[in-house]
Design a protein around this nucleic acid. Sequence first.
DNA 1: GGAAAATATTAATCTAGTTCAAGATCAATC
DNA 2: GATTGATCTTGAACTAGATTAATATTTTCC
Lengths: 217, 217
Amino acid sequence: MQKNFKILKYKLNDFNYVTKKRIFAIMDRNILSHITRHVTLSKEEQDFFISILLPQKLKQGEFAQKAGEITYNFIHVNAGCLMTYFTDKEGNDQVIQFATSGWWTGDLHSLTTQQPSIYTTRALADSEILLLPKVRMEELLERFPVFERYFRIMFQNSLVTHQNRLIEAFANTAEERYSNFQKKYPQFEQFVPLKYIASYLGITPEFLSKIRRKRTV
Amino acid sequence: MQKNFKILKYKLNDFNYVTKKRIFAIMDRNILSHITRHVTLSKEEQDFFISILLPQKLKQGEFAQKAGEITYNFIHVNAGCLMTYFTDKEGNDQVIQFATSGWWTGDLHSLTTQQPSIYTTRALADSEILLLPKVRMEELLERFPVFERYFRIMFQNSLVTHQNRLIEAFANTAEERYSNFQKKYPQFEQFVPLKYIASYLGITPEFLSKIRRKRTV
DNA sequence: GGAAAATATTAATCTAGTTCAAGATCAATC
DNA sequence: GATTGATCTTGAACTAGATTAATATTTTCC
């Protein structure tokens, strides 16, 4: 386990400064421990699963997947932090997900249909990911149906999260969304530049600044 | 297959009226044909699956599930049209999904955790639904893993749809969302009162009126 | 077929959040 | 440790969409 702190100073007013630690923590976790929380795996299943994963390291800012390219891998975050965003016709990035240790990420649509992805997935901090290639995933699901169960549960949970976000987006003000985001993902504000948090919340960085100011004053 | 037309008149200006048919169509479809589009089922699997489903008829306006109650069933729409909505603290209904023939609906979160549901699911037209009780579903998944696969695929697809809606919500204007909605679900505008479409789009009925007027003038 | 209830429209006014533009602060690099 | 590019903040002017309230239209139901 490595840690890497960077001190950021924020001016509150002419006389006060607040310091915040932006943490680039690399937490090494075992992917199997995540999976066996939901299903029970035999030794054979564990071994096969591990054998088909491709480990990869990403430096901060590097891409795991670029928009326009076909997605060949489902991505599991082992350590660090990634974000997935969509670039619209005006060139604005719309962040749709952050993912830290233990999360699956990537473009399911492109992975399924093998059409070019509309999303970019990028490391926000030095990260370690595990790639699960589409063909190997299909093989895995064929041979060991317990993984059908595992991914069924993953997708089912993710669906619940996405429904909640949708309600959030429509029913709450930007300020409420920011509060809820901080409550739900306290770790992210230390990894993620504010402009991406703003994007995730569906507002401009300027407006997020205003919300933050209003609070601290 | 029954059909039931109601003629609606809309005033465009003092001299012109346009009529629209609001269709309350009952289309009877076989649930198995939906499932076997994604997985292959043996005779035994088909029979068991059908045997655990509870058919139910709903009149327009009736509830399949009320907020505050625990969800005991996953719901498959056989015929008609349902909507699922969330009522916020101010008492505003926020529609999160419409479901017609072939769709699964209901509150996955409440179904999984057996906590009271925050959603209400209600018939927008006379409908026929099939209830899949939670305990029977668990039994089904235990005995026939092919259904793990089926629901994995369902949830995976639904997740893609939800991600798209999230992007839609943040990146597009209300007018664009309405256009896309009409393109994607042309059938719904004939089932669904405009105020619920407005809610689904995340706008007020008044603003939807404005958008519609701007178009026809 | 008529009255009441639900749904849709219109218009005036208001506001949460955007846009633009400039300045302040921070991080990376040589 | 000075320079440069990225991130963050501030403020003024603007706009998409909300709110309120009144009216019109449609549907339900007796």
